[in-house]
Design a protein around this nucleic acid. Structure first.
Lengths: 197, 197
DNA sequence: GTCTATACGGCGATAGAC
DNA sequence: GTCTATCGCCGTATAGAC
């Protein structure tokens, strides 16, 4: 990993933990074993460093989500949708820094940088949307899912469920095992809500 | 409102918008028309001011949630649970500063203050838990809700749905009308999941 | 309880040698 | 590309008059 990458990597960690104003350039430099002024050989200033970290986080996070979506196997629709919930929830643990950074600054950006950050954020929502709608349609074709419920309605509910799980992980500080149990439990209600009657 | 209260009020606003390190004492003082050193007549230092704001936010937020819970009327179980979702979601808009402050610093506290903050946070989860379980039980008694689903299972799913709505408001930047539509839509799936078959 | 004046440190950023 | 040295500014916090 070259120096620029090491700076971004450490920057992501520290910005995640301490926020934009709470993170000093000296701390970033110190953690990778160089001095503060050396950073300026790689980035024009603190803002540019931070925005480069945002770009990296957005790209990586979307890539992680995409790869989890693609990895879904050809199981039953129910198990496919449920497995996807596990996987996307577990991104929080397996890619802790990226996902914490992503949500921290998506929800609470430094006000003066918010305009320039929005250009960098490409909503992955639409990618997930399409994928889930396709699985839902497959579930209908196979007679597993209630045909009278519109695909986009089911997808919307599913994504809100996913949001809720994401929220709960942070709010209740669930560990990986607790999250599995949590997903298992609420899935019973959700599946009952969309399965063919 | 006395000066101490005005300081806390403005502090909540600025901490919410700019974070702990991003908020300066001069900015707080300036916004209420006094000078920076005057703050020290009311709080021993910045940390104490912030922790007092945290205490205020936690108390007010829990009070708001509690009063929304108590306000539920004697309608059908379905409409009662659905109305509660609207109300709790709309707290975000009606009490924007308090609820943003609450979640910002619950999820992303200044690391050095996290220990002292935890003492101040009393989870309102258990209050909501009990209330919702009672409504669920009532729904079973009246034959509206599927009796084979455990009360705590339904409550857990309901609260995750609420978390998801909270998350979506912030993530998609929904306005009040969009949130009503969103809740209406996902409620169809959730209700189908818990209603008596 | 508010003010002016000021101390003190740490911040982002630059200059210039190697 | 990294360093030492240093600048200028602004942050929290204190002293002491009114």
């Amino acid at each position: 990993m070259d120096t620029r990458e090491r700076i971004l990597h450490t920057g992501l960690e520290l910005f995640t933990e301490r926020g934009y104003e709470g993170t000093t350039l000296a701390a970033i430099a110190g953690q990778i074993g160089i001095k503060k002024p050396s950073l300026y050989a790689h980035f024009t200033n603190k803002e540019a460093l931070f925005l480069a970290a945002v770009k990296k986080a957005v790209l990586e996070y979307n890539q992680i989500v995409s790869s989890e979506l693609k990895a879904s196997e050809t199981e039953s629709t129910e198990s496919q949708l449920k497995t996807l919930l596990y996987r996307l929830a577990e991104v929080y643990y397996d890619e802790y820094t990226i996902s914490q950074f992503y949500y921290r600054f998506l929800f609470f950006p430094p006000p003066e940088l918010a305009p320039r950050m929005q250009e960098l954020v490409v909503y992955h929502g639409s990618i997930a949307d399409q994928h889930i709608e396709a699985v839902v349609q497959q579930g209908k074709d196979e007679g597993e899912i209630e045909p009278s419920l519109a695909n986009d309605l089911i997808t919307e509910a599913y994504l809100t469920l996913l949001s809720g799980i994401d929220f709960d992980i942070r709010y209740y500080d669930f560990n990986k095992k607790q999250i599995r149990t949590h997903v298992d439990r609420i899935w019973q209600v959700f599946w009952r809500g969309i399965r063919a009657s």
